[in-house]
Design a protein around this nucleic acid. Structure first.
Length: 486
RNA sequence: GUCGAGGUAGCUCAACGGUGGAGCAGGCGUUUCAUAAGCGCCCGGUUGUGGGUUCGAUUCCCGCCCUCGACACCA
């Protein structure tokens, strides 16, 4: 039986379309998933949408459509973006799916109750509708919520609480021991510092009358399960946890890695493991925490006008180019920056002048001189003959490092062509020239194999060109010149 | 405010305490297989700042300035 590899993205809020940060997360996850498939592992990639939220209901009514219709529209947009980016997800979970998700959320709840970790208490505070949550006094600006510009209402309500505090020590130990790995180290330290200060119990439900969507608390329909016990459970419910058909759950849980943005670290590193411990379920093996993408050194925002929409980039350059930029120029371990200028520069340097041109020049020679030669390429789909430092980088989640290694390999090949000049040699010594070109084609094939996780389409295109022994009719990545619209 | 990370070439980043490197951008030259692409060379830095330790500091210590992150119900 082959090794399994369960990898997840967070589930995204469908109250707006996905931005570049989401595109980064899913691209990263997809690259890692494809890498593990390349290694022959049985991979399961989960992504989805977090639909049980008042924000969605509000956004829908603002748009003047039914919630469901609104959600379907946004989710279609999510999937369309994923398709353009070649995100090879195995499942897209929607937490409003009563058949797929609800049983899991309720089963989790039952287990928490069984462990004696759910308790009814009253919660009092300032409630902001925009946040869909209580906010604290110190957050207010002129008595209003700074994010939503609304005056919060004083509110007291009955909630079920989860005894998170009880698990502070155990979670901390699991992280320290490496049973739950948090990558990179700075994030691990952050969360350990938080745990050091101790965790407080968290409210795990809302009165049903106040929310129109979500999963009802088992045995108490007057309460609805709140986001933590709802959204986080998607990682389990997607696999069939709580349902009769839980074969996937048995096969893939615990997750090998949850890939998340740094903004949701706390939930994944504190609340989530505590819930799993309480429910007597194994913890995920790793949390991989990436940074944010800034533009011009600043957080993208509408007011600054520096928002870069992934769809615009894709329309101009194609999904593969976007994947490559994210892989090559954004560090997975800290914040990265992108501007339209830097994107174009990188596109021309890495893709047009790099991969694209290299493929053209080698395949032109192959087409002209190898037409009666039968080169057999290894059809292996494993990692045989792929440089070990490349594999090592991937194992360390260093997608940027791995991509840099492929770029270097291409540059080395360019230099080699220059130095060995097969186009000259062929005129002097036909056989030697052909042998050299065959070697170059083989090298190109290895590069195509390395590109498989990063640029799946390009990788296939190059392999096909080699198989059919012809140069590309149109450039793989046409160079973008200055007077272009972008 | 507390804790943490960091300030190195125009940009992104490297440099066991021993004459500061790479990629991209820019300039010059050159090849023709290729997408005005490739290759070679060059330009480019009082390493945030003021002290200290040392034969010698980007690297160690202290002060200061600046940037970024964490500090709980925000996916």
């Amino acid at each position: 039986m082959s090794k399994t590899f369960y990898i997840t993205t967070p589930i995204f809020y469908p109250n707006a379309n996905l931005h570049l940060g989401h595109a980064y997360n899913t691209t990263l996850v997809d690259i890692l998933a494809r890498y593990h498939r390349l290694k022959g592992e049985e991979v399961y990639l989960l992504t989805g949408a977090d639909e049980n939220t008042e924000k969605v209901v509000r956004a829908a009514s603002l748009a003047g459509v039914e919630t469901k219709e609104y959600l379907d529209g946004i989710v279609a947009n999510f999937k369309s973006l994923f398709q353009k980016l070649s995100i090879s997800y195995d499942q897209f979970i929607r937490t409003s799916d009563e058949k797929v998700h609800f049983p899991g959320a309720q089963e989790m709840w039952r287990r928490l109750v069984e462990a004696g970790d759910i308790e009814k208490r009253s919660y009092e505070g300032l409630y902001c509708v925009g946040h869909e949550a209580f906010i604290t006094e110190k957050d207010l600006v002129n008595g209003k919520c700074p994010d939503h510009g609304e005056t919060p209402q004083g509110l007291k309500e009955e909630n079920y609480f989860f005894k998170l505090s009880k698990y502070t020590k155990t979670v901390s130990e699991k992280i320290r021991s490496g049973e739950l790995q948090i990558i990179p180290e700075t994030r691990r330290n952050e969360i350990l510092a938080l745990l050091e200060r101790g965790l407080e119990d968290v409210s795990f439900s809302r009165p049903s009358e106040k929310v129109s969507v979500g999963v009802k608390v088992p045995g108490d329909s007057s309460q609805t399960i709140y986001v933590w016990c709802d959204a986080l459970v998607n990682y389990l419910s997607a696999l069939g946890f709580g349902r009769a058909d839980d074969a996937l759950f048995k096969k893939f849980w615990p997750a090998d890695v949850h890939v998340i943005g740094k903004d949701i670290l706390r939930f994944h590193a504190a609340i989530w493991p505590a819930m799993l411990l309480s429910a007597k379920l194994p913890l995920p093996k790793q949390l991989f925490v990436h940074g944010f993408i800034t533009s011009g050194g600043k957080k993208m925002s509408k007011t600054l006008g520096n928002v870069i929409d992934p769809n615009e980039l894709i329309a101009e350059y194609g999904g593969e180019a976007v994947r490559f930029f994210l892989a090559r120029h954004i560090s997975p371990f800290e914040d990265g920056d992108i501007t339209l200028e830097s994107f174009k520069e990188a596109y021309n340097a890495d893709l047009a002048n790099g991969i694209g041109n290299l493929t053209s020049r080698i395949m032109k020679m192959a087409q002209d001189h190898l037409h009666d030669t039968n080169i057999r390429m290894e059809e292996t789909n494993d990692t045989n003959k792929i440089p070990s430092d490349f594999l090592k980088a991937f194992d360390d989640y260093d997608v940027q490092g791995a991509t840099t290694i492929v770029s270097k390999a291409m540059s080395t090949l360019d230099t080699r062509i220059q130095e060995t000049a097969p186009f000259k040699l062929i005129k002097i010594d036909k056989e030697k020239g052909r042998a050299l070109i065959v070697e170059l084609v083989r090298e190109l094939y290895t590069i195509a194999r390395m590109l498989n996780p990063i640029l799946p389409e390009t990788s296939e295109k190059i392999k096909t060109l080699i198989k059919e022994n012809r140069m590309p009719e149109i450039s793989l990545f046409p160079r973008k010149v200055d007077n272009d619209s972008c």
